[in-house]
Design a protein around this nucleic acid. Sequence first.
DNA 1: CAACAAATACCAGTATCCCGGTATTTTATA
DNA 2: TATAAAATACCGGGATACTGGTATTTGTTG
Lengths: 216, 216
Amino acid sequence: MTQPETTPVINILIIDDHRLFNDGLRAMLADAPDITILGQIYHSRDALSQVRQLRPRVLIIDFNMPEMDGLELTRLLLTQHPQLCILILSMYGESRYIDDFRKAGALGYMLKTSTKDELLTAIREVARGNTYFDPKLADQKQFSNHADDTFLKKYKLSPREVEIIRLIKAGLSTPQIADKVHLSPYTIETHRKNIYAKLGISTVAELVRFAVEVGI
Amino acid sequence: MTQPETTPVINILIIDDHRLFNDGLRAMLADAPDITILGQIYHSRDALSQVRQLRPRVLIIDFNMPEMDGLELTRLLLTQHPQLCILILSMYGESRYIDDFRKAGALGYMLKTSTKDELLTAIREVARGNTYFDPKLADQKQFSNHADDTFLKKYKLSPREVEIIRLIKAGLSTPQIADKVHLSPYTIETHRKNIYAKLGISTVAELVRFAVEVGI
DNA sequence: CAACAAATACCAGTATCCCGGTATTTTATA
DNA sequence: TATAAAATACCGGGATACTGGTATTTGTTG
């Protein structure tokens, strides 16, 4: 991390057992003039020796790796090479995974659904010692802080409806919710009906997915 | 499949929601002179219209797709376009998945751990109307899964259980799921029971939250 | 081969969910 | 003040979910 920022070329190692993905990344990054792929690793067990030998600046590591998962590998590599800039590519957007990797010392974490440009940005940021935690995921967290006002407007949900959604999402049954808010179960059922109609859905699963997605 | 084998250029569509993978494949295949990437699809819902519009020879489809999985998409596409040559890219080497796709009419199935050369071979074979089922899999019936290993191990979920979770998360009822996977509703209920026991939960809401959280 | 896990299947019973409808009261707004 | 939205409440009916249990078959592993 104390590397001079005048280094013009970013030396990268890609670690992913999915060879097609690994090779695809290489091909995709081939035309970036400030990026050099020093090598590709298909097995986590080769990581240490290759890092020692090739001395990359940035490591792109897949979240899921057989034998040793991405988190464990990240920890191990950073223990021995604390100057490494690690960027994680993942299918999972959940904050607990992001936090795990952040704590382990990874500088970046992004989804595989991201674009090439986003990947290039991420690589450049972490190469500079900055962090790059996918903005799309950060937005999701911030978004949840202003949940109620937004949904009152966008989905025409009332405060009471938002409250009921929260309780359903938490796994409470209609009678349990009725108990909690001191209303009749019939009232709760009516709210559910109204919520479903407003959102155009018809099952708890859909409702919970919605609630999680929009941060209620 | 009755196409003349004199067609010099293979027109391909890539369908994968992991944009980095999708774009990587494109970049990797860019220097193959007999291959043209007609387009890339990131959402399964766009597949039908794009196939109709672009009329590709070969479709490269990811096994796992949100909203509509690779198998379902394969079936749908081949119902409407029986001449399509479909090659599946997958993380799963188990024969039952391979058999499912074979029965659905896919001409090829290979692992993401394969090499670029193997991919090129597969593309050329299926483009000719031949089949290409990964030779590595024929030899090794017991291929270790990489993908859901995290969850299979951590939560002791079986592949079938993960599949059922996905379908529940999507909002399907037990009879609907039973229909979809061609099993008895009783079987689905049993799977639900086993899943709940393993995860220590008792409602759809909790299950969906879990599924979203861990990326199933 | 034996043991175990996974997969498949079934039953019964109770509670809940969803959905069609109804209604009145309260609150907010134009 | 009138109107609309929100809140509250109820009914009936059918379908589904959950939970207690049972069982057999298939596939995998030691």
